[in-house]
């Protein structure tokens, strides 16, 4: 029972959603709309689960006084203040918007902007033309980096002979665009087709109940 019913649910939902794609009849569509709504409602709970896991992790840290437990207190303080501000004051509430504008945005954006520095350091230290592959990669990267900012065209127009500039005033930009829409696009398309076949095969295995790794986490 515990094993069979989930497999049946997957199979029925999967097959229904697969064939409804081809059937525009309203009878099918109303069932389909029902399924979409159900998925959405379950989704609401799935969101809360993520928070539940987080709360559990930090709660344990605090009760066990594990190293850095003070930071877990910070997590809780942030969570409780923000959630109550938003739930009581509404999503356009003054405090809620204030927290978002002045804490959430700067923290998230700054955290990610650290990568600009890491990237520069990696560019200097790790991006070496050690192999033919790495060399090709670097050349393409430099072309795109140079061509996709105004200074590429600017330098080209300043340095290249005037007759060339007259012919192709935006050469760096155009070369970058060719790399993007030519070789880059071809490679990405190949990867995409391969990945699509992989996704179809995984989906089929889920519907047929052969692939069950998504149940694994629940039995842990």
């Amino acid at each position: 029972m515990k094993r069979q019913i989930p497999l049946i649910i997957s199979f029925v939902c999967g097959i229904f959603m697969l064939i409804q794609f081809f059937i525009p009849h309203p009878g099918f569509i109303s069932v389909y709309r029902g399924i979409l709504n159900w998925a959405r409602i379950i989704g609401v709970f799935a969101l809360i689960i993520g928070i539940g896991t987080l709360v559990r992790l930090h709660f344990r840290r605090i009760t066990r006084r594990s190293p850095g437990w003070f930071y877990s207190v910070v997590v809780f303080a942030g969570l409780i203040v923000t959630a109550s501000a938003g739930i009581i004051g509404g999503t356009r509430g003054k405090l809620f918007v204030w927290i978002f504008q002045n804490i959430n945005i700067p923290l998230d954006a700054t955290m990610f902007s650290l990568l600009a520095f890491f990237m520069a350091s990696a560019a200097y230290r790790a991006f070496r033309a050690r192999t033919l592959d790495a060399t090709l990669l670097l050349i393409a990267a430099v072309i795109v980096m140079f061509g996709r900012v105004p200074i590429g065209d600017f330098l080209w127009q300043a340095v290249a002979p005037q007759s060339w500039v007259d012919k192709v005033p935006f050469l760096p930009e155009q070369v970058a665009e060719w790399v993007m829409s030519g070789p880059n696009m071809a490679a990405r398309r190949g990867i995409m087709i391969g990945a699509a076949l992989g996704a179809i095969s995984t989906s089929l295995k889920i519907i047929l109940g052969i692939e069950r790794s998504h149940f694994a986490s629940s039995s842990q």
């Binding site: 809780f76 969570l79 203040v81 923000t82 959430n104 923290l107």
Partner: peptide, 9 residues
């Protein structure tokens, strides 16, 4: 702080 605030948000 970021982790807590984003969860609360």
């Amino acid at each position: 702080l970021f982790v807590g605030i984003s969860a609360g948000y």
